[in-house]
Amino acid sequence: MKVLVIYTHPNHNSLSYAFLQNVIKGIGENSHIKELDVLDLYEEEFDPILVFNEHKRRRDMHAEPSLEKYRQQIIWADKIVFVYPIWWGRPPAMLMGYIDQMFASNFAYRDKGGLLPEGLLKGKSVVCISSMKGPALYPLLFLNNAHKILMKRALFSYVGIKKVKFFEFGSLESPKGKQARKLNKIYHYFKTISL
């Protein structure tokens, strides 16, 4: 199994970074995972801003030369792991800018003229590890599960990825947030997964 981890947080002293380190540690001890690639969007200085004009058309984004490296990472991966905080009920703008550009027509999906497109990323799986200041039930009770609906239904299902697992960790700025237990849960998950 080949795993691509996409990390989105500007601070390497954050709990998000600690989750990333535990993902890497667990994968390093998992004999089922043969290869790992980590993309740190802030460290990479990924440009999340979409530009469309007379020289750069949206319909051509699937062939944009500056994004070829990132397309190859997605093609290569069997499993894509996203590690990010929840800000204002959704992933950071940096990650959304990556998604806007990478999950483009004729790369991630193909329009067939009907209601739904053909997903071109079938066979891959996704894990989303998100953290937030508020309680873990906040997205469900106050936002109608908007985060999961956005990621699973509006994005991954659309491009053909059916197997999506979420870890939504809340209360992480609280002294009673059980941070060590949550970090350990991620480490053990990645140490033992086989698909």
Rank of each mutant, 00 (worst) to 15 (best):
K2T: 08
V3S: 12
I6N: 02
Y7V: 07
H9E: 06
H9V: 10
N13L: 05
S14G: 13
L15R: 09
S16Y: 06
A18G: 07
Q21W: 13
N22L: 12
G26V: 12
G26S: 11
G28D: 12
S31V: 09
L39R: 02
F46A: 09
F46S: 13
D47T: 06
D47W: 09
I49P: 04
L50I: 15
E54R: 13
H55M: 10
K56A: 01
R57C: 00
D60I: 00
M61K: 13
M61E: 14
H62P: 06
H62C: 02
E64W: 11
P65R: 10
S66Y: 01
K69P: 04
R71H: 10
Q73G: 05
I75D: 13
I80A: 10
V83T: 00
Y84A: 10
G89C: 13
P92L: 08
M94R: 05
L95D: 13
M96G: 14
Y98S: 08
I99Q: 04
I99G: 01
I99S: 03
F103P: 03
A104P: 03
A104C: 02
G113R: 15
G113S: 10
G114P: 04
G114H: 13
L116G: 09
P117H: 07
E118I: 15
G119N: 10
G119A: 10
L120Q: 01
L120M: 03
L121A: 05
S125A: 03
V127Y: 06
C128E: 11
I129M: 00
S131Q: 15
L137R: 01
L141H: 09
L141I: 12
L143K: 08
N144V: 09
N144T: 06
L150N: 15
L150S: 15
Y158C: 02
Y158S: 06
I161C: 06
K162N: 14
K165R: 08
F166T: 09
F166W: 14
E168D: 12
G170M: 10
S171H: 04
S174C: 05
P175G: 14
K176G: 00
G177I: 01
K178L: 14
K178G: 04
R181M: 08
K182L: 01
L183C: 12
L183H: 11
L183W: 09
K185H: 03
I186H: 07
Y187D: 00
F190I: 07
